[in-house]
Amino acid sequence: MEHSTEILYNKTEVYCSSVHRFGSDALLLARFCPPKRGQKAADLCSGCGIVSLEWHDSGHRGPCTALELQPEASALLAEAVAAQGPELAHITPVRADLRAYREGEGSFDLCACNPPYFTAGFQSSNAARATARHETDCTLEDVCACGFRLLKDGGRLALCHRPERLAEVLAVLRAHRLEPKRLAFVKNRAESAPWLFLVEAQKNRKTGLKIEPDILIAAGAAMYGKH
């Protein structure tokens, strides 16, 4: 498959296309919620696999399921994993709909998702772009239901989303017995309004939310190497 290549800090390669590529939000999400080295993890709505590959680049070697609805995006990750040898064999690209996915339910330590952000407004005429940006095939409710289903008790679900939907995201997490535990806002500069937030919730845990320091793009928070 024709692709461009992005190279992460420790030389892990990410294959991208004009439609299936990644932004700083997905990279920040991966760095906000790194799994421990041997933990079982899932990258929901994985796209080209940036979250899975950034986790690997940072030292994760436990089983990692990269769940993606769109076949072209899943194929990009499969090609990247195959091309980089057995060291990446712990990442398993799975082309499936998270609304119906149940394999390994109750066994994951960590799930992360960079979900579609929008429920209304202009949609791209390109079906793949529209699916990635709008809740046409995957809603916030779907993501949280899947996370609850896959996680073990105490397991973590991490999301990135737009600040205007913060109240809704927290409410939907709690409605699915996923208790928000960490929250951080992403800003371009210290004096700017946030354009993204990152939240981590735990399955079947008590209340207690920690607000973490702002993540500043101007300070290099989203830098990565390019090839």
Score class of each variant (00 low, 15 high):
2 E>L: 06
3 H>D: 03
4 S>P: 00
5 T>S: 04
5 T>V: 13
5 T>C: 05
6 E>P: 04
7 I>S: 13
9 Y>C: 14
10 N>H: 14
16 C>P: 00
17 S>T: 03
21 R>M: 12
23 G>V: 15
24 S>M: 10
25 D>M: 09
28 L>I: 13
30 A>M: 05
33 C>G: 13
35 P>S: 09
35 P>G: 03
38 G>S: 12
39 Q>N: 11
41 A>S: 12
42 A>I: 14
43 D>C: 05
45 C>A: 14
48 C>S: 13
52 S>R: 06
54 E>R: 06
55 W>Q: 03
56 H>G: 04
59 G>T: 03
61 R>S: 04
68 E>A: 03
72 E>A: 05
73 A>M: 04
74 S>M: 13
76 L>P: 14
78 A>Y: 08
80 A>I: 00
84 Q>D: 08
91 I>R: 08
94 V>M: 02
96 A>T: 12
97 D>N: 08
98 L>E: 11
98 L>M: 09
108 F>I: 10
109 D>N: 09
109 D>E: 13
111 C>A: 09
112 A>P: 14
120 A>E: 09
122 F>P: 07
123 Q>T: 11
125 S>H: 13
126 N>I: 05
134 H>T: 15
140 L>M: 06
145 A>I: 00
147 G>I: 04
147 G>D: 03
150 L>P: 04
150 L>Y: 11
152 K>H: 03
153 D>G: 11
162 R>T: 11
163 P>F: 02
167 A>M: 13
169 V>N: 00
171 A>M: 06
174 R>N: 09
176 H>R: 07
180 P>V: 14
181 K>Q: 13
181 K>R: 12
182 R>I: 03
192 S>P: 01
197 F>N: 06
205 R>S: 10
208 G>V: 10
214 D>L: 12
217 I>L: 07
217 I>V: 14
218 A>R: 02
